[in-house]
Amino acid sequence: MVDKNMPILIVDDYKTMLRIIRNLLAQLGFTNVDEATDGTMAFAKLEQKPYNLVISDWNMEPMSGLELLKKIRADTRFSQLPFIMITAETKVDNVVIAKQAGVNNYIVKPFNAQTLKSKLAAVFGNF
């Protein structure tokens, strides 16, 4: 059973997008959500507090979502941390590279609440 109070870190350089993801998560019952606007800030937050899930955009500066994913997977403290990429980068090469880097799931923008729910369920089980 999914713990809907689990801490989730969402990462996107568009603050509006962070707001949308936060609201859609709230609609699904997940309200314990923190935000970061790039990979560097996200990694700093991971070091300060335990999270059960990272949902990240890919295209960010200075540290992209892919770089964040690789850094997380290379760190034994976070190597098993579930990571979902939400991005408009839909070329097959990108998806393959993200998958090889250890992403748990991949959501294509624009997305809806149902897609978000199904990907969360794919990672944590149905809720």
Binding site: E89, K91, Y106, V108
Partner: peptide, 27 residues
Amino acid sequence: APSDDDLMNGPQLEENTPSQDDIDKLF
């Protein structure tokens, strides 16, 4: 080898790009 920046293409037109279903099949 392609860098992270080389991979950045941004959103594609719907008819040219894999859908969420296509991505799911890849996974």
